[in-house]
Amino acid sequence: MSFWEYANPKKFIATTTPILPWAFGIAAACLIVGLVWGFFFTPDDIRQGSTVKIIYLHVPAAMMAINVWGMMLVTSLIWLIRRHHVSALAARAAAPIGIVMTLIALVTGAIWGQPMWGTWWAWDPRLTSFLILFLFYLGYMALWEAIDDPDTAADLTSILCIVGSVFAFLSRFAVQFWNQGLHQAESVSLWEWTFNVIARFFAFVWNSIFGAEQVIEVAVREENVSNVFFVPLLICMIGFVVLFVALVFQRTTTEIRVRRIRALESRARRG
């Protein structure tokens, strides 16, 4: 029993199809619970007011925007090395999900920035990096659409994904160099706030397990960061991940079927 068995399209479809309803169900449940919890049952932040509720969408979407690209990089490498068609098709199926995640992160970030920074858009390193990531997704998807032969398309997009990853990394550092951040110390940062929430939570868990002798002191700048935000945020993150997995399974199955239709039709034409 090996992981590579799932590279067989038939096996892949047979395994994932029964999982699909469960995955969609779990994703929906997590999103509903997490978002409702976050929306109705968490307090407002002193400095950010109720805009803090945007993190339950913004942070998971931004996390997925990067993770989806990472997943595409891995599947591209698997395709180039082991020539499993399912792998290439999974990368193709994931790209539109990634672009939607990037778009959600950008839009919610802009809406959050409007009242907090007084502007919809700032050329902040983090925002700019996501914009560049968005362009990479666009180019990747356009290349898939442009090439007729499926194997050639899979090869070329895989190479683009690898080279693109390297340059996306370079861009990240270049952008940081180019603008060290308009909103560094003096104003609120959604991400710093989120990291504070996460750090505070793990310190809390650690301290309650190991008792008072080994208390971790977390450098939390904002006084009102508290653990109540963490659990709904975590549930939303899980919801986004499971939703992504469900969508990738479903879309990959669709791509496999499209490929099979093409194969059957060309075989029928040949006689």
Partner: peptide, 29 residues
């Protein structure tokens, strides 16, 4: 990447421009 595509010029710019970002940033800087 785009050599086999007819009228690939536009696609070529879409692919290449994001890759140009670091060069442009450091050059102009």
């Amino acid at each position: 990447l785009t050599v086999g595509i007819r009228r690939g010029g536009l696609l070529l710019s879409l692919l290449v421009l994001p890759l140009y970002v670091p060069t442009l940033i450091f050059g102009a800087e």
